[in-house]
Each structure stands twice: as structure tokens, then as C-alpha cells.
Computed example of a mutant assay.
Amino acid sequence: MRRGRGTALALLFLALSCVPWTRAAAGNPAFPGWYADPDAHVFANRYWIFPTTSARYEDQTRFDAFSSTDLVHWTRHPDVLTADAVKWARRAMWAPSVVEKDGRYYFFFGANDIQSDKEHGGIGVAVADRPEGPYRDLLGRPLIDSFHNGAQPIDQAVFRDGEDWYMVYGGWKHANLVRLKDDFTGLRPFPDGTLYKEVTPAPEYVEGSLMFERDGRWYYMWSEGGWGGPDYSVAYAMADSPMGPFKRIDKVLRQDPEVATSAGHHSVIQVPGTDRWYIVYHRRPLGDTARDHRQVSIDRMQFDEQGRILPVKITHAGVDADPLPAANGARSDSAP
């Protein structure tokens, strides 16, 4: 009897796993569950969030995705990528960065949390024909599997500048910029012949790199502080090129003792055809100090007349519904 009830519950959970999670109004967290390091985009006329499944490293071997047409009502797409599809990944799969190119979707991720060049792991890439996957390993090995300029190969963000594709990444207080081959199977040298350019923007840099362009200027954002503590936060710099040089301007996302702690490791969404921007990040509920209890939230991100990012107010209310425009007016590329 007990076994039959368990089977019924399992089948019910499976049936509900792709059912949209709806609510009467927006709110934070954006959707239920312990998730972190969200990567957000507009693909196929939907908002997409690809987060880390926040769990013990040994259990952190699968990714879900979430999609929405209005930033309020989200559909969960379970197991879009799992360690079963990446034979060299055994633990600590985290921090996705997903891009679309030529009708295919490329899912960059970190795995195994390597601590030296003697360990096997690093940054990998998987591919699928749809944003919701299923994704399969593209290379059968990591794209970057060792330390360069002191940067741990984690927390990558892939972006495009014109016809060129780049990736900024790095932990352990160092960040590198690399150029990607057009098919994402390797790295292209810079004009001076080097493969890895250190772009660490400030001594406070820890991890969680993100690069995007707005009005001809490049913004470099990153996380500071300890990800397990309340002081986790996000700062930024600006430059005329993704090559920099970048100089830290200010901290723009941080804890609020009346709302949540550990606000960091984020991405951003620009609503296609507008100058409306949202910051998608993870945070910890007040009073909860469990390492892996992190939740994805969304708040507005705004700029002043000089293009500087204004401090973000983290909220319980979240954002208002922002339906995407008609399909023929929506972008479906890697630009936020």
C-alpha cells in the first residue's frame, strides 16, 4: 500500500513538472525551489532563465530551465542538461550561460569545481535544437580545463560583439576574456597571438562575470564577497570595448536586512525593442543561513542620464508583468 502511494505521488510530480507556475501578481522569489546563478535571455519570443540547481556539490548534477511570456508566470522545464549527457562531469555543475547561434542553442557550464590543473573539469559546452533541450555534450571534454592568469575556470558568460563571440570567466579573484571559434569547439587567438587576456576589473572581484552592451558602451558586472555569506553583492565597470580597460565604478546590488541577504551572481534582460532592463539574481531568505538555500529573484535595473547603473532596490514584490511583443518584433539572440 505504501509503495503504491509513493508511485502515485511520483507520477503526480512528473505530470506537474512542466505545468506553468501561476500567481495573481509578480513576487520574489520568481519561482519556487532552491536555485542560484541565473542566466537570463529572450529566445523564441519567451523569457528564459537557466539557473544552477542549488544543492550539495555531489547532488548538483542537473539543470532545470524556466520560461515565461511576461516575467510573472513561469513554466519549469526539468533536466534540460544532466551529468548523464556529459561523461566527464561528476559533480558541482553550475552557472549556465546559454546562447543561440544559427538556430541552435549552446549551453556553457562549469563542472567538477577543479582546484588545480591536476584535476579534470572546468568549463564545458552542450548543444540542443531548442532552448529547453535536451542538451548533449558538444566536445566530450571541457572547453577550458586549466587555470590561466590565476583564474579558476568557472562562471563563464558568453556574448557577441559584431560577428565575434567572446567568453569572460573566472573565479579566485581573477577574470579572463577569450575569443571563441565560430562553432564553439575551441578558442581563437587575439590579434597579438594570445588566447587568454586577463580583465580582472578590481581587487574586490571574486566571480560571476557578466558583459553586455548598451548605447555603444560595454558594461562589465561581477560578484563580490563570499557567496555563502550575507555580504554577497554585485559591482560594475564601463568601457568603450569589451577589451576594457575596466575600472570599478560602484556596487549596485546588495543585501537588504528587511528583504533578503546574499544578493549576487546575476544576469540581465533587456526587453526587445525597449530600454527596459531587469536584473535576475539569487538571494537568501532572511534568517536562513543554509549554504544552498538560494532563490532566484527579479527586479528592475535602471540607468541615469550618463549611462551609469542606479543602485537596485531588491523587493518582495518583484516586477510587473511585461509581456513580450509580437513574435516578429522580438529578438532571439544572445544579447540580453
Score class of each variant (00 low, 15 high):
Arg5Cys: 09
Arg5Ser: 10
Arg5Pro: 00
Gly6Leu: 15
Thr7Gln: 14
Ala8Pro: 00
Leu9Pro: 00
Ala10Arg: 14
Leu14Ser: 04
Leu14Arg: 14
Leu16Glu: 13
Pro20Ala: 08
Trp21Cys: 15
Arg23Ile: 02
Ala25Pro: 02
Ala30Leu: 07
Ala30Thr: 07
Tyr35Phe: 15
Ala36Asn: 07
Asp37Ser: 09
Pro38Phe: 03
Pro38Val: 00
Ala40Glu: 03
Phe43Trp: 06
Ala44Cys: 13
Arg46Thr: 05
Pro51Met: 10
Thr53Glu: 01
Ser54Gln: 03
Ala55Gly: 11
Arg56Ser: 14
Glu58Gln: 15
Gln60Glu: 15
Phe63Ser: 03
Asp64Phe: 02
Leu71Val: 04
Val72Ala: 06
Val72Asn: 04
His73Gly: 07
Trp74Ile: 06
Arg76Pro: 00
Asp79Ala: 00
Asp79Phe: 00
Val80Tyr: 00
Ala83Leu: 07
Asp84Met: 02
Val86Trp: 04
Arg90Met: 04
Met93Gln: 05
Pro96Ile: 04
Ser97Phe: 03
Lys101Trp: 00
Lys101Pro: 02
Phe109Asn: 07
Phe109Ala: 09
Gly110Val: 05
Ala111Gly: 08
Ile114Cys: 09
Ser116Asp: 13
Ser116Lys: 11
Asp117Arg: 12
Val125Glu: 02
Ala126Ile: 02
Gly133Pro: 05
Gly133Met: 01
Tyr135Gln: 01
Leu139Ile: 03
Ile154Gln: 06
Gln156Ala: 15
Ala157Asp: 15
Glu163Leu: 13
Met167Val: 02
Val168Tyr: 06
Tyr169Ile: 01
Lys173Trp: 06
Lys173Gly: 01
Leu177Ala: 09
Asp183Ser: 07
Arg188Tyr: 09
Arg188Phe: 06
Pro189Ser: 12
Asp192Asn: 15
Gly193Pro: 09
Thr194Glu: 14
Thr194Lys: 15
Lys197Gly: 09
Pro201Cys: 12
Tyr205Gly: 10
Tyr205Val: 02
Glu207Leu: 12
Ser209Trp: 00
Asp215His: 14
Arg217Glu: 12
Trp218Arg: 10
Trp218Ile: 03
Tyr220Thr: 01
Ser223Tyr: 07
Glu224Leu: 12
Gly226Tyr: 10
Gly229Gln: 13
Pro230Tyr: 02
Ser233Cys: 13
Ala235Gln: 10
Tyr236Gln: 07
Tyr236Asp: 11
Ala239Met: 08
Pro242Arg: 01
Pro242Tyr: 06
Met243Asp: 13
Met243Phe: 11
Gly244His: 08
Pro245His: 05
Phe246Trp: 04
Glu258Phe: 12
His265Met: 11
Val268Gly: 04
Val271Tyr: 07
Gly273Asn: 10
Thr274Asn: 06
Thr274Ile: 00
Arg276Gln: 15
Trp277Ile: 05
Trp277Pro: 05
Tyr278Met: 09
Val280Ser: 03
Val280Tyr: 05
Tyr281Pro: 06
His282Asp: 02
Arg284Phe: 04
Arg291Gln: 15
Asp292Trp: 13
Val296Glu: 06
Val296Thr: 11
Ile309Pro: 05
Leu310Pro: 05
Val312Ser: 08
Val312Pro: 07
Lys313Asn: 13
His316Ser: 14
Ala317Ser: 14
Gly318Met: 11
Ala321Gly: 06
Leu324Ala: 06
Ala326Met: 12
Ala327Tyr: 01
Asn328Thr: 03
Ala330Ile: 03
Ser332His: 03
Ser332Tyr: 09
Ser332Leu: 10
Asp333Leu: 09
Ser334Cys: 13
Ser334Ala: 15
Ala335Tyr: 11
